[in-house]
């Protein structure tokens, strides 16, 4: 039962990842609103970050993964061996944490740029830039 549930959860996550990426790419390249493009960019990076977290999880012999922390000391060699196979790899989490921090800086900068764009054109639509003037767009 648990194996079926884990497989289902895994497949759903992968499908969700692909769908999120597709929607985000569609939004970034087709939506005229810079705010919508921005939201899609966040979706895109978050989908990848979530995928990166999955990399650390391993399912061995139908056992659930454990946090990568040893609470008790001393640890017997058997427990250490089990820990080695079952514990979640913490490195992808560290990578994602770094990526999130970097994304935060980049996104703050982009939102600043969008604000300056709004000051120039009076709208956040890229159609204003193409027409060379101010244009109200409700999308």
């Amino acid at each position: 039962m648990s194996e079926v549930f884990i497989q289902l959860a895994f497949r759903t996550s992968i499908i969700a990842f692909i769908v999120n990426i597709a929607i985000a790419m569609y939004g970034v390249y087709t939506r005229p609103s810079l705010i919508k493009k921005f939201i899609c960019l966040i979706m895109f990076t978050d989908a990848i970050n979530l995928f990166a977290l999955f990399i650390g999880f391993r399912v061995v012999n139908n056992t659930y993964p454990k946090p990568p922390v040893l609470i008790r000391e001393p640890v017997s060699p058997g427990e250490l061996e089990e820990f080695k196979y079952i514990a979640v790899d913490p490195l992808p989490q560290a990578l994602v944490l770094t990526a999130i921090v970097i994304s935060l800086a980049v996104f703050m900068f982009v939102i600043g740029l969008i604000l300056v764009y709004y000051e120039h054109y009076g709208t956040t639509s890229i159609k204003a830039m193409r027409s060379g003037g101010v244009e109200e767009v409700f999308e």
Partner: peptide
């Protein structure tokens, strides 16, 4: 903006 969005 072009550079940043494509870059991200």
């Amino acid at each position: 903006l072009r550079y940043a969005m494509t870059g991200i």
